[in-house]
């Protein structure tokens, strides 16, 4: 079963040893259409609206706030409000978020290359350096670590559930999850 969540932030417990905790808030989700356990769901994110969205809202008779659509594995058999009851007994979840985007980054930041000496006229500071051999093989090996877009990539981790507050829809999981506070991601119940 999958759910859409918002990352709220981190805290810790006062037990010995103390445990790091990430708080996730369940985003209000409406199930639109169910086919074999998979469903088209709608949720709210921002105010983006266009004719395609309006058309879908009309089709599923949704209110104007629900402007984003996604496919999830759900427990529901019928369209309506999402069924959260699975979370009461869940122990482990898989949490998927986009990591923080760091833009186009060099190899020192992106791949932890050591870099060159700072001084003594070395003229080699943060460069990539050699990217391979000469005539043989005559090409760069696939997967060579080079500068490029760093972050903003989906990362999935397994987390144990510490507590679930059904009233406020707050899920406390042990450990950290990727992404910035306030970003949306999805969780999948493992056990």
């Amino acid at each position: 079963m999958e759910f859409i969540v918002e990352k709220i932030g981190m805290s810790r417990t006062i037990t010995v040893p103390s445990q790091p905790v990430t708080l996730l808030k369940l985003v209000e989700t409406k199930v639109c259409e169910v086919t074999d356990g998979k469903a088209v769901v709608a949720y709210q994110n921002g105010k983006n609206r266009n004719k395609a969205i309006e058309g879908k809202q009309k089709k599923y008779s949704l209110s104007a706030e629900f402007n984003k659509f996604m496919t999830l594995e759900v427990a529901n058999k019928e369209p309506g409000d999402l069924d959260y009851s699975v979370l009461q007994s869940a122990k482990v979840i898989k949490t998927s978020f986009n990591t923080k985007g760091r833009g186009f980054s060099g190899v020192m930041k992106r791949w932890n290359f050591a870099g060159g000496p700072g001084g003594h006229g070395s003229r080699f500071h943060r460069l990539v350096g050699s990217i391979g051999n000469a005539e043989w093989p005559g090409r760069v090996q696939p997967g060579k670590k080079m500068p490029g877009q760093y972050g903003k990539k989906k990362v999935t981790v397994k987390n144990k559930i510490m507590s679930y507050d059904a009233e406020n829809g707050i899920l406390a999981v042990v450990g950290s999850v990727a992404g910035a506070n306030g970003s949306l991601g999805r969780i999948k119940v493992e056990k």
Binding site: M10, S11, T13, I14, L23, K25, N168, I170
Partner: peptide, 15 residues
Amino acid sequence: NRYIENFEKKQLAQK
């Protein structure tokens, strides 16, 4: 954040 505060308040209640 009030959700973080709530989560911590529960733990600090007996302290």
